[in-house]
């Protein structure tokens, strides 16, 4: 990995290449249908990590080759069909040519050469992006559940859900596992996807380059609410990351008197404690850790922004918002739900 010193200039050069590759892909893919936003939240051609950049590099090569071949073949087809259309009154039968050995050899070898051009960077990138992570990588365990994401930082003793924070410029080594079915971890701007296969520890390593927020979504059909299993990845500058870790590990303070305090009381005496952990309050392990729920921006695996209204609606009837959600409606009144929502949002 490049040293801190070199990374500055390398980073600038890489950023320049990224812009060029992105617009190259964009141009290539825009043939016929223009006007797409290539930096849409789930774009696969807006690379923000080393792995994503490597992929984009191969992507660009292949896309140009493939578009070129498609144009050549398409134009040849159209031309042949027009040029050799049967004309009324034209003499009998065209020459009954059966084949041409040299031609066959040529158009067997030509694709082989093209494929070689594609294969070489492909193999290189496979091995580079699947190399073992360096010793100083940040280890994160990702557990895919039906239908939410759990993130555990063993070295930092942090547990959170649905929102993954990583420091910029430092390798992150994800280990993927899960207690139920196969899911797939996919944050397009940070690289390709990797399946979460129960019983196997799949690995995904990347170094995010610039601070920012990126969206991810489960990419392997995992049941009824597969469509509702998104996540946010927040790439922090190193000091912001340290602050975030500290905030995650801090004991939650007492909630403000009023609805928040009522909310905590309701939470503590309800079935909530059986499934959720709030440090100092409950230690359930079936659902997401809520200790710093208020510091997140979305709820229920990225399907809704966190506001008092949305959290209240969720608390009253989770399966209505997320079909077959394992969290049941708990029979809270409107007022109770609101109080708990206020409490949870205050957990920063």
């Amino acid at each position: 990995m490049p040293s801190d010193h070199a990374r500055g200039t390398l980073g600038d050069a890489k950023a320049a290449v990224d812009v060029r590759t992105t617009s190259t892909i964009g141009l290539a893919l825009s043939l016929g249908l223009g006007g797409c936003a290539w930096d849409a939240p789930m774009s696969t051609v807006a690379a923000r990590s080393d792995v994503a950049r490597e992929i984009l590099h191969v992507y660009a090569i292949i896309t140009w080759i493939v578009v070129g071949i498609a144009l050549v073949v398409g134009i040849a087809l159209a031309w042949v069909v027009v040029r050799f259309r049967s004309r009324p009154g034209a003499p009998g039968m065209p020459a009954q040519i059966r084949g041409h050995t040299l031609l066959e050899i040529s158009w067997t070898i030509a694709p082989a050469i093209v494929l070689l051009v594609i294969a070489i960077p492909t193999i290189q990138v496979i091995f580079r992006t699947q190399a073992a992570p360096p010793r100083d990588a940040l280890q994160v365990r990702v557990l895919g559940h039906q239908w939410w994401w759990e993130f555990r930082y063993p070295a930092l003793e942090v547990v959170t859900a649905n929102e993954l924070h990583v420091p910029a410029g430092r390798p992150v080594a994800l280990t993927l596992d899960g207690p139920d079915v196969i899911h797939s971890f996919w944050v397009p701007m940070l690289g390709g996807k990797r399946d979460v296969v129960p019983g196997r520890q799949n690995r995904l390593t990347f170094t995010a380059e610039t601070a920012g927020e990126y969206r991810g979504q489960c990419a392997e059909f995992c049941g009824v609410s597969h469509a509702n299993m998104a996540m946010r990845v927040v790439v922090d500058a190193p000091d912001a990351f340290a602050r975030w870790v500290a905030a995650q590990k801090a004991e939650p303070g007492e909630p403000a008197p009023g609805p928040a305090a009522d909310g905590k009381a309701i939470f503590a005496r309800s079935a909530c404690v059986g499934c959720h952990t709030i440090r100092g309050v409950s230690s359930g392990a079936l659902g997401p850790d809520l200790t710093t729920f208020g510091s997140r921006r979305t709820l229920a695996a990225g399907i809704l922004p966190i506001t008092v209204e949305t959290v209240t609606a969720w608390l009253k009837n989770p399966p209505a918002l997320k079909p077959d959600a394992k969290m049941p409606a708990l029979g809270l009144t409107d007022e109770q739900a609101r109080a708990v929502a206020t409490y949870l949002i205050g957990l920063k």
Binding site: T44, V58, V66, T122
Partner: peptide, 23 residues
Amino acid sequence: FTIGGLSGVMHASPPVDLQQTDS
């Protein structure tokens, strides 16, 4: 089929496929 086959060639490259598969 030429178009379909060519997008298949794109899938044949694992790095690219890791973005394209399941999408």
